[in-house]
Write a protein that binds this DNA or RNA. Structure first.
Length: 366
DNA sequence: CCCTCGATCAC
DNA sequence: CCTCATATCGAGGG
């Protein structure tokens, strides 16, 4: 029996949340922005509503540029409020969880889900479920969403993108090949600019082209694993299962520096809130870490990292700061340019519970 | 097998 | 003019 996989995407999420909170924004261009703090308007657009998009504003666009597009318009420029969107997201995901067999959130505004068991593989029933899900989110939060249903993650995700906003696209298993055939390969999940360029070099433009590509040639260019995935994705036979949402395995924070610098102390100083955030996160999740990474983005936007892994999980408050500081010294010491942005990551997270049992074990062993 | 690092992706 | 956070992979070294 073919699976019934769904993908739900909350439409222009951040901007839509702002519209719901302040209905007078509806009908006007709205953009939610990340201000980097370097100058008044430095930063980028995170999410634009459809009115703003119609004027040429899109996510990732520098705020200055976007403001030019909106000149003379009665537009709203709103600072991103992540905790607010997170709260909405958590309510939506909590409700969604009750309506599907398995839920796998993949971001603040989207999730995969499985309906195979509850529908018995019947796509008519699945469509009814999807309509209920959309109506429920609409009723409880006032938000529209777009949903795709299909036999795999790749197909479901393509479906939710196919008709937006407020769309529902059902690709029954028999229609999968027809749906994919002419689709640009760039639309496939996992095919970004680099992979697309490489595919282009092989004369592959559509999912159909990709499905007919010689496996050996794909393998040589992309490695066994990615090649196998690409072939499966191109025919909608990718078999990745839906997994319940998992705990993050790393926390990181990165800031744009007030000015470019090569001084590690200055980077550390401007990162101090970020370090506190990470420590708070570790504490609230009862985690310690084994690896610290210093992240540097230089004036030419190139990136470098420097990391250190500890023998045993670290709980000590001061260790993170000292390790990060030392890593930034190494990073800037060998650099040929100034830092523009600086970040810290902790990974190799370990539950504090199991950590104490580990130290008990080590004490007994030693 | 583990660690480090850069690259890529998608958000 | 150029944000921020997470996951994964592969290469290279040990």
């Amino acid at each position: 029996m073919p699976r019934v996989i769904g993908h739900l995407d909350l439409d222009y999420f951040y901007a839509q949340v702002e519209e719901v909170e302040n209905p007078s924004l509806k009908g006007k261009p709205v953009m939610v922005c990340v201000f980097s703090g370097r100058t008044d308007d430095s930063g980028v657009v995170s999410t634009a509503n459809y009115e703003a998009r119609a004027l040429g504003v899109h996510s990732g666009m520098p705020i200055v540029q976007a403001k030019k597009k909106l000149e003379g318009q009665e537009a709203a420029v709103i600072r991103m409020d992540h905790p607010k969107y997170e709260a909405v997201s958590e309510r939506v995901m909590g409700a969604l969880e009750q309506m599907v067999d398995v839920l796998e959130p993949t971001g603040i505004d989207e999730a995969f889900f499985d309906l195979t068991a509850s529908t018995g593989g019947d796509y008519e029933r699945a469509k009814t479920s999807a309509e209920k899900i959309k109506a429920s989110i609409r009723r409880s939060e006032g938000l529209t969403s777009s949903v795709g249903l299909g036999r795999s993650k790749v197909v479901a995700k393509l479906g939710s993108d196919f008709a937006k906003p407020d769309g529902l696209t059902v690709v029954v298993p028999e229609a999968t090949a027809r749906f994919l055939e002419g689709l640009p390969a760039t639309k496939l999940y996992g095919v970004g600019p680099k992979t697309a360029e490489s595919l282009e070099g092989m004369g592959i433009r559509t999912a159909g082209d990709l499905s007919r590509a010689p496996p050996a040639e794909l393998g040589a260019r992309f490695g066994r694993r990615l090649a196998a995935y690409l072939l499966a994705a191109s025919t909608g036979t990718d078999s990745d299962q839906i997994h319940e949402g998992q705990e993050p395995t790393q926390f990181s924070r990165i800031v744009t520096l007030k000015r470019d610098t090569r001084d590690p102390a200055e980077a550390m100083q401007q990162l101090s809130q970020g370090l506190e955030y990470i420590q708070g996160k570790l504490k609230s999740k009862s985690k310690s870490f084994r690896t610290v990474t210093a992240i540097g983005i230089f004036t030419d936007l190139s990136a470098r990292t420097k990391s250190r892994t500890f023998e045993a999980p670290v709980d000590d408050r001061s260790v993170l700061r000292e390790a990060a500081s030392a890593l930034f010294e190494e990073l800037t010491g060998t650099a040929t340019r100034d830092l523009r942005r600086a970040g810290v990551r902790v990974s190799g997270l370990v539950d504090v519970e199991s950590q104490s049992s580990l130290s008990d074990f080590l004490r007994q062993a030693g």
